[in-house]
Amino acid sequence: MQSSIIETRRLFFAFQTRQRILNDLNLQVPAGSIYGFLGPNGAGKTTTLRLILGLLKKQEGDITLFGRNLQANRIDILRRIGSLIEQPSLYLHLTGKENLEVFRLTYQTNKNRIDEVLQLVQLQQAAHKKVKSYSLGMKQRLAIAIALLHDPEVLILDEPTNGLDPNGIIETRELIKQLNREWGKTILVSSHLLAEVEKMATHVGIIHKGKLLFQGGLQQLQQLKSKQSAVEIEVNDVTRAQQVLQEQFPVKQVNGTRLLVSFESRERSALLNKLLVQQGVDVYQMAVTQNDLENLFIQITAQ
């Protein structure tokens, strides 16, 4: 079993309104993983990440990074972490290179490192332009470059694709995967998009209303999803189709000319199709219904 590089134990948090934002959160981010921290807006993702970075004062529970307590080892831990929380934090009146220089002085890294990270995020051409003239995508990449400046072991990225156009989303996603694959970075990345997380994460944590509903590998999540998935079939004769399927494939729902049947496997879906056709039922359309985040929440909470 992989060891956890970031771990929270029984983490509770409430703002002044006393409404609990985090409720008994036990996060475990394995070393070397891309951990997709998934949840809708307001679920408690940013609060969790801010607690992990020491930007919020912990109220209850424990936070450990690299096996060490955050409060007692704040400086040493932050030296090994790069972060991007919410919108990029950049000095707009300075150039891209000057922004990197500000943080290079703090992290006391070699001057060459600025060019290296600029190259990594492909911003060499814009290095001498003021950041206020950058597009959102460029700002996001520069913020990632800052997070990478001191070659940290862990990257904490809060919704890094937020507000980006499709190209920007793909670029950022590929960069995250590259950083994990080629540079061995452990990446904790939050998102409210299930599809986005599925495309890059190796591990997933799903948070809803401050509670961690699911935590595990991507495969486990996919198994869970497929367990709850359904096959939607459009036919010419619904009554006849129901009779044909009755024995082997119990129909869950009928909606006009469409039937909903539990998804079991690809092979079973093929069998279902064959059965209908053999019995003279015309099949117009057949598709596995995709689970969005909302449905997944309903399914997980219903378990």
Binding site: R50, L53, G54, L55, R74, I75, D76, L78, R79, I81, S83, I85, E86, Q87, S89, L90, Y91, L92, F103, T106, Y107, I146
Partner: peptide, 18 residues
């Protein structure tokens, strides 16, 4: 105000500085 205007306080506090 430079920090507030640029939304950079969080980056300052998340860096390894006392």
């Amino acid at each position: 105000q430079t920090e507030y205007k640029n939304n950079t306080w969080k980056q300052v506090y998340a860096s390894p500085r006392t």
